[in-house]
């Protein structure tokens, strides 16, 4: 087995694994949002940025190699990850206290993990739509962070291709692949992986909002670093 080191800790890996996969298997958490085990890596959120032999790389896409020196938990990287999370917060409209995903939201949980106490940067306050056309699923574009997970889930897991990404730069946005552009005119159902994969509150299942009360939710008593390792380990 080949080895690399992450923050000085020797970690073994199988050929073909990414740095993220090697780290997760060894019980080391690297913050991430667009990465999910079992899905094609995307490498767009940049939260998992690590230094590999002195160079910044995305851990979720960068292949592990023998002898690599990886730095993940330095004060500099943690501060910059906090700033990248703040970029995501100011770009959209994320108001945790009024969001039904609070406590189960990975964006919120990563922000807590990185000790983000404010948005720091000025808000963009974009005008984004709410698609409430589907009888079982709500799509709130205000909370979308363009992680592409629903796009990948629908294509790779559900075989449906319900979602897509359109537009460029700051005008990038999630689209629904139907003639009307509305969710009700797609094949999306509540059983689909795409309906459940959203790390934020952009895609919500109706009539489930407060089944789990605030205070008993996934991240209420356990940080995302622990939850993530328990869920992702070995996958």
């Amino acid at each position: 087995m080949a080895n690399l080191t992450i923050d000085g800790q020797v970690v073994g890996f199988e050929p073909g694994q990414t740095i993220m996969e090697a780290a997760t298997a060894a019980g080391i958490y690297i913050p991430h949002l667009c990465h999910k085990p079992g899905y094609t890596p995307h490498g767009s959120c940049k939260l998992c940025s690590v230094k590999v032999n002195g160079r910044v790389c995305s851990a979720c896409t960068f292949p592990a190699a023998d002898g690599q020196q990886v730095i993940s938990q330095s004060a500099e990287l943690q501060q910059d990850r906090r700033h990248i999370t703040q970029l995501l917060f100011v770009e959209g409209n994320h108001f945790c206290p009024s969001c039904e995903k609070t406590g189960q939201c990975q964006l919120q949980a990563v922000a807590y993990e990185l000790k983000m106490h404010d948005n720091h940067f000025p808000q963009f306050y974009p005008q984004r739509a709410l698609d409430a056309s589907h009888p079982d699923i709500v799509l709130d574009h205000n909370r979308c962070i363009f992680c592409n997970l629903c796009v990948r889930a629908s294509r790779e897991k559900d075989g449906k291709n319900v979602f897509g990404i359109s537009g460029r730069g700051i005008h990038k946005h999630l689209i629904v692949n139907s003639e009307s552009g509305l969710l009700k005119d797609t094949q999306l159902t509540v059983d689909d992986a795409a309906a459940h994969v959203c790390p934020t509150g952009a895609i919500l299942i109706r009539n489930t909002a407060y089944h789990v009360p605030i205070g008993q939710r996934l991240f209420d008593h356990q940080p995302i670093s622990e939850v993530s390792l328990e869920h992702d380990h070995g996958q």
Partner: peptide, 21 residues
């Protein structure tokens, strides 16, 4: 550059617009 950014990654998508502001 704010106009040219493709929007794929967070730092450039949001950063170029923030830098502009």
């Amino acid at each position: 550059f704010a106009h040219e950014s493709c929007g794929f990654c967070t730092p450039c998508r949001v950063g170029t617009s923030l830098l502009q502001k």
